[in-house]
Design a protein around this nucleic acid. Structure first.
Length: 214
DNA sequence: AGCCAGGACTGAG
DNA sequence: CTCAGTCATGGC
């Protein structure tokens, strides 16, 4: 029984990079906040913003809701789009006030994901970040790195819609939150060390171990 | 000195 | 519904 292409790709990435321990955070709430802050933003800038929130003791639902918009904007500024993100964090916290992580987890994937998507500023990727890493429910995250990787390996066009690409992962992988977490982490890690422009790097670390794909 | 980052929303056609 | 425009700081 040979692996499906996406599972084979996972094994290759995993063999090279090993366990990556994602998502770095001290709580489910910090993960949700990070998911908003990292939208189209380098994680290193997100860390600065999270650090500001922690230093100001503003990393909780109540604290964010009580903090003035101006103050919140100042704190999240290093992560970019600071006005928009401050606003999105407010919306997220209003939502979490009524829907605890515990309650969301009990709803199951589709329900929880659907509720999250109703929050202004939470799109498909952010919702999946939260469902997967904060709720520990297997829902695969499709980001720009994922699209680029699939495109390069000739597996799926990066133009395909989010649900289509996600379905491919869901069909080809065992329904395992730990595996989904690690896979997404591996994709991002690989993106950081691989070149951005070439269709497929000659020095790609997967070249030797993923012959079925390359 | 540009280019780009772990997206999502909006308005136009 | 498809798609360009918009939002913004910091690293390399």
């Amino acid at each position: 029984m040979t692996d499906s292409p996406l599972l084979a790709l996972y094994h290759s990435l995993n063999a090279h990079y090993g366990d990556l321990e994602w998502w770095p955070a001290d709580s489910a709430f910090e993960i949700a906040v990070g998911a908003i802050l990292t939208q189209n933003t380098d994680w290193r800038n997100v860390e600065k913003a999270l650090g500001n929130l922690k230093s100001a003791n503003v990393l909780s639902i109540e604290a964010i809701l009580e903090t003035s918009t101006d103050q919140l904007e100042m704190l999240v500024r290093p992560s970019g789009y600071f006005r928009m993100k401050a606003d999105r964090l407010k919306h997220l916290c209003e939502f979490l006030e009524l829907n605890s992580f515990d309650a969301l987890k009990k709803m199951g994937r589709d329900q929880a994901r659907g509720r999250l998507l109703s929050v202004k500023g939470v799109g498909p990727e952010t919702a999946d970040d939260i469902v997967l890493y904060a709720l520990d429910i297997p829902s695969f995250v499709i980001d720009t790195y994922t699209r680029r990787l699939l495109e390069r390996f000739g597996l799926y066009s990066s133009k395909l819609k989010y649900p289509v690409l996600q379905a491919a992962f869901h069909q080809q992988l065992p329904e395992d939150a730990s595996l989904f977490k690690q896979y997404h982490a591996l994709i991002v890690e690989h993106a950081k060390v691989s070149c951005r422009k070439k269709p497929l790097c000659e020095s790609c670390v997967l070249k030797d171990t993923c012959p079925q794909i390359i």
